[in-house]
Nucleic acid binder design. Structure first.
Length: 330
DNA sequence: CTGATTTGACCCCT
DNA sequence: AGGGGTCAAATCAG
């Protein structure tokens, strides 16, 4: 079909560019969070500037998407998730155990391109995930786990991710993200924007990259209370290991509210295109798996698996703030 | 009781 | 035909 557009741009290159854009966006989002710590006068301004950057990045990414879609001769929009092959073809079959299973093929966005891929030591990324499958993969000695955003049902958030233990370094995970979060659940925004007049020192509760939490975010394990409600930020900040795939380690110097200078931060974000996260933030994920992470919640429980959707705390939720909070200046 | 995970089965895509 | 992504019943924890 389309032939002219994508032909000039090698797929690999567009993928690389896309990846850079994703990382830049992440960095900008991170930066945004920090700029919010500024005083009331500068915060809105900084907010707008960063929003502008995010907007540009987003549009660049979508433009790139269009190009590569055209290049790949992609057919389904995959945006809403519906469409693609199967169409509406409800089927019914009987499993070996005698159960009748009806299946409706609504969204089989199979050839969806990853929006991001990271190698990380922690599975937390600030979103609440729900595991919906696990599978042994051909060329891998470790199973692959499939997660989707918890808010898929209530908000139609199509974000997904696949998690697999890194072959080269089993202490790390290869996390592949598909789709973007469209959910706007406040509970996924631990970074509470200080209400007007709120004491700024609550910053410590907003982001805490402190190392005190080296081990397990076991608390983050969903199995506890309703995972979507997990928002322990208020309590002991010391227990919160807010690691993030944004390679925060490279950017922030942690500990008790000591934040980087903004310009330093910008330099870090821009300079290091961000964010290749090999965030070796403790081996929390593994630790967690050790002490009861495995099959802690589920049924049968046999094969080794990943910790059940570790909701992350750290969190930089791109575009998660209500715009109303940041009115435009005249 | 509610909600999350496990796990085998199903089915699309390559 | 087989691999891989998803579904959904079964199971379990809080």
């Amino acid at each position: 079909m389309a032939s002219s557009l994508g032909r000039d741009v090698p797929a690999e290159r567009t993928a690389a560019v896309a990846n850079d854009l994703v990382e830049a966006r992440d960095g900008a989002a991170t930066l945004r969070v920090f700029l919010l710590q500024l005083d009331d006068h500068r915060a809105p301004w900084a907010q707008r500037v960063v929003d502008g950057v995010l907007d540009r990045l987003s549009s660049a990414m979508s433009a790139l998407d269009d190009v590569s879609d055209a290049a790949a001769g992609r057919r389904s929009p995959a945006a809403g998730g519906s469409g693609s092959g199967g169409a509406a073809r409800p089927q019914q079959s009987v499993s070996s155990s005698g159960n009748t299973r009806k299946r409706s093929f609504v969204s089989r966005s199979r050839s969806q391109r990853p929006s991001d891929k990271k190698i990380t030591a922690t599975l937390e990324d600030g979103h609440v995930w729900r595991k919906y499958g696990q599978k042994e993969i051909q060329n891998s000695s470790y199973p692959r786990s499939y997660y989707r955003c918890t808010h898929r049902s209530d908000q139609g958030c199509n974000a997904k991710r696949q998690v697999q233990v890194c072959e080269a370094d089993p202490s790390k995970f290869v996390v592949t993200y598909y789709g973007d979060h469209t959910c706007r659940d406040p509970s996924t925004i631990p970074l509470v924007v200080p209400a007007a007049g709120a004491a700024p020192d609550c910053a410590n509760n907003l982001i805490n990259f402190g190392t005190s939490g080296t081990n397990n975010n076991a608390a983050a394990s969903t199995t506890g209370a309703s995972s979507s409600q997990y928002l322990a930020m208020g309590g002991s900040a010391a227990d919160q290991l807010s690691t993030s795939w944004c390679a925060s380690d490279d950017v922030f110097s942690s500990s008790a509210g000591s934040f980087m200078q903004v310009d330093e931060l910008i330099g870090a974000v821009v300079g290091s295109a961000g964010v290749t996260s090999t965030a070796t933030v403790g081996s929390s994920a593994l630790d967690r798996g050790g002490h009861g992470g495995m099959g802690m919640a589920g049924g049968g429980g046999g094969t080794a698996s990943f910790p059940p959707s570790p909701n992350g705390l750290g969190s930089f939720v791109v575009g998660s703030y209500d715009d109303d909070l940041f009115p435009m200046d005249p």
